[in-house]
Write a protein that binds this DNA or RNA. Structure first.
Lengths: 298, 298
DNA sequence: GCGCTCTATAAGGTGAAGTTAGAGCGCCCC
DNA sequence: GGGGCGCTCTAACTTCACCTTATAGAGCGC
């Protein structure tokens, strides 16, 4: 069973012609080369060199083997560069799942920026509801998730990475467009866009209304804040969306208003409990956090 | 610098799930696997496994590396089969040069028979004059030559491998066809096919004539005995050719007569002095010799 | 709590691969 | 023809990657 080192020595000797020069190239002593060649001949059962007046002349067999060995060396080199790239995060595939409001805005920008300095890195971004995200992560199809709502799935762990708040987006020609702040309960007085009380976002807003003894009303029900933004931009009416949805997008079709009261929301990262997270994912997570902070302040 | 053994252990553990089963498969002890994994992690600088409640769960990086390693294993296996094939002569390329009389008959048959049991073996047969054969061998383009004349080139060594003789081939309707033997000097009395006095064959025949004080005459001059046979078969006249040219061919267009006197010729193998001959060539050489003997007797 | 399965650690053995030192051979050149 | 040069080979010793056995300890099912 010939091994890689033996092939390396064999090829080098054939290439440079003498054991002495091969030894120099491989940074070992000349006898090391000489012994290795003899040993290789004995285990392969082949005559690899003809000893002619103190010189080594490779046989056709040796040349043939050395030629074939090139493919092996290529694969060896390939593995090494892959290991190096994996260490510095410029190889591998980063599977991320996120809610549309993040994925369409700041997250996709962050991913693009992250990938820019990492040639060879493959990324995948799947958008979906919190249930879909949870499913992707718990099954191992995504290794990192981001959402403004959290999951209670036993094999997914969620950790808050940033604080945000609801903002109200208002079509340009809407009466609310001149207000400095929008009172949340006032949304009942105009046709607005909102979320089902079955969703976490809906429940969050519900609480403001119920505190005032009111019941929330809305003209248009959507599932994601990203959709809400689109509807608002289309002129349907005002909508409450997470401020993350606006980061990295300068949407001139709507005006953004702070709300009264302020409704804080949390962006969480989601990771699988059973599957280990890759170095790459961990690196991206911290990259995203600082990217996020910069985006907010800037 | 990760090595092949480390990749083998890594891949096996990922494949079978536990160090214990991997150890069993690789025929080593369990701690050997455990230590190897740790060592691999330390030299690559990557976390390859998540230790979770006493179990090992591979990270995406580890899986990625293991996948890439498959290509390396494939090349490794390839080299090993090539070495095995080279040892038993069923790989490599056998470059042979020969004179046409041998190459068109017994040699090509021998080569076919030799290659039959050696899948993967490539052969090449170049026909030419002794000068062309010599050139091919001394330059390394052929590693084995066969000829009925010998070369004096300093970097080509010739060793006789078989004895033969001239025979006279006669067209079926020729007057000589009824003789039991053909006297060589009688060839002067009919239009015959022969070789230039510049060639070794021509000089060999010349000697018979000059011993009788005669000068050889012929109607048709050819270079190779194979050509002479074709001309004779075409009805031009009788020709002296080496008996090797007839081995393995049952030519019904001519009759073969022994000559008076008998003119022995030698078939020699030619090998390069500077380039080593491959095991393959040596194997073929002895194969050819026994094949040859069998052909002669049979 | 017991037995089973798994991983990790400790301490020691072995052989492949490397070292230095030196001999021997062929070639070239004065 | 003798000395320098470049090459290969042998011998004896060192080193370390990889292996061993023995053992500990954690998690899990009954």
């Amino acid at each position: 069973m010939i091994n890689a080192r033996q092939l390396e020595v064999l090829s080098t000797v054939i290439e440079v012609g003498t054991t002495a020069r091969a030894a120099e190239l491989l940074n070992v002593s000349q006898p090391a080369i000489s012994n290795m060649l003899r040993h290789t001949e004995s285990i392969t059962g082949l005559t690899l060199f003809k000893r002619d007046r103190g010189r080594l002349i490779p046989t056709p067999e040796a040349v043939h083997i050395a030629n074939e060995a090139k493919h092996l060396f290529f694969q060896q080199q390939r593995i090494r560069t892959i290991v190096d790239q994996l260490r510095e995060g410029s190889a591998g595939t980063l599977h991320i799942a996120a809610s549309p409001s993040l994925g369409l805005g700041v997250l996709s920008k962050a991913m693009a920026s992250f990938a820019k300095h990492r040639p060879g890195l493959r990324t995948s971004l799947e958008l979906g509801s919190i249930d879909e995200i949870t499913d992707l992560i718990s099954s191992g199809r995504a290794e990192l998730g981001f959402s403004i709502t959290t999951s209670r799935h036993p094999s997914v762990s969620a950790t808050p990475i940033a604080e945000g708040r609801f903002v109200c987006v208002v079509p340009l020609d809407h009466p609310f467009a001149t207000l400095s702040k929008v009172r949340i309960v006032d949304l009942n007085s105009v046709p607005s866009i909102s979320y089902s009380s079955m969703t976490q976002l809906g429940q969050l807003i519900d609480r403001v209304f119920s505190k005032e003894g009111l019941e929330r009303r809305y003209a248009c029900e959507v599932r994601h804040t990203a959709t809400a933004l689109e509807m608002a931009a289309g002129g349907v009416g005002p909508a409450l969306i997470d401020n993350f949805a606006m980061i990295g997008r300068d949407d001139t079709r709507v005006v953004v208003k702070e709300t009264e009261p302020t409704l804080p929301i949390r962006i969480s990262s989601l990771t699988p409990k059973v599957f280990p997270t890759s170095q790459l994912a961990s690196t991206f997570l911290s990259f995203f956090q600082s990217y996020f902070e910069e985006s907010e302040t800037g």
